[in-house]
Amino acid sequence: MTNNLTQEITRTPPRSAGDDIKEASGVYDQTDISVRPEEFRQRGPAEHREKTFELRNVSVSYGGNRAVHDVSMDIFHKNITALIGPSGCGKSTLLRSLNRMNDLVPSAKVEGSLLYHGADIYGPKVDPVQVRKVIGMVFQKPNPFPKSIYDNVAFGPRTTGIKGDMDDIVEEALRRAGLWDEVKDRLDDNAYGMSGGQQQRLCIARCIAVEPDVILMDEPCSALDPISTARIEDLMLELKERYSIVIVTHNMQQAARVSDMTAFLMVELTADEKSRWGELIEYDDTSKIFTNPGDSRTEDYISGRVG
């Protein structure tokens, strides 16, 4: 099984997941930091990497019911971090707590410490609106606004007050999302006329246009066909040159293909099976999780024995 997966990974074209896994799994381990400091900080040994998020004993509950319990992990700068696990394990909940989208559910409560570059995301002076400006999000189902393609991209910069020539901002965002050539002649068309894959890339463009530091992606490909999925995966690998990306996915191959780090969460039950919540089982380099997991539950899940 593990073998199959490695093959699957190495079959993917160059300049994609295969390389990243190689890099992450040790190429830079002994490298002198002075040679390529930037990459060392991103792909080198964990203790030297720059942290975007530091989660310490994070629990999220809805109206008293625990959804995620006691998660501690570091999410690294300009890495793609995948959250995987069976449905109901709270991976989306965890993701949404990173940019305070959980605030929209009145009964949601986040405990523990959740730091973004050392600053508490749930600190008393922190403004959720500003958090979401810095930490963008792409959703499971493409959700373009019922407006023109142009207005979809321009909405964020306009409302957040980003200065500059709007046409340039829109073009730049669409280019980075790999959508410019497809839509440059129909910027005034309604976004609902696009294909699902295009809509999702538009949502990514929309997110980029606000110039975030981090992009959170909540199962961004689950509503898309394989070809659109492949395009978005390629796009993610390009985007990580500039942004830190956290992706929730139920597709293990996807996690293996694109991510540098993988966190495996699982559903835990109380003895009487009355309540359930998600817990972090294992978090490590993607190559390690998929080739040599440290926990038997991870191995069972990855090899398809459970979940």
Partner: peptide, 19 residues
């Protein structure tokens, strides 16, 4: 999903409602 999309871009609640 429209509201979430707008809020996730850093729009305030009123901006989301109004626009």
């Amino acid at each position: 999903s429209i509201r979430e999309g707008s809020l996730a871009l850093g729009a305030t609640q009123w901006q989301t409602i109004y626009r």
